[in-house]
Amino acid sequence: MSNNNLIKGSLQTIILKLLEENEKMYGYEITQRVKELTAGEIKITEGALYPALHKLEAEGLLSTEIQQVDNRVRKYYRLTKDGQKEVTSKMSELQGFVENLQRILTPDLKPGFNI
């Protein structure tokens, strides 16, 4: 299933949500967790993931921690206080969007809804 374009707009929210549930994560771990949660239906491309992580870090929503793992370095990301606040607002924004999309795609479910 090719859903890269659909995922693009929600990537930051996905990252923030995963980091809210897991104290700290690194790039590979995030891709695997998404794959696992969606039974392989959603695959985050690394080319989009790392720039998104760096952007969130620059915005002060994530902080990083470097750890030495088997003669190489691993960069862990975790939520900052601002990041924790942002998760709630991003989540309600995304949930609102999904609900509205649902109304458009299946108007029968919400008969009272008018565009």
């Binding site: 690194y26 790039g27 590979y28 690394e46 793992v69 088997d70 190489r72 370095v73 960069k75």
Partner: peptide, 9 residues
């Protein structure tokens, strides 16, 4: 380093 870690993992 980040790509290297990704390959290795």
């Amino acid at each position: 380093e980040e790509i290297f870690d990704h390959y290795c993992t």
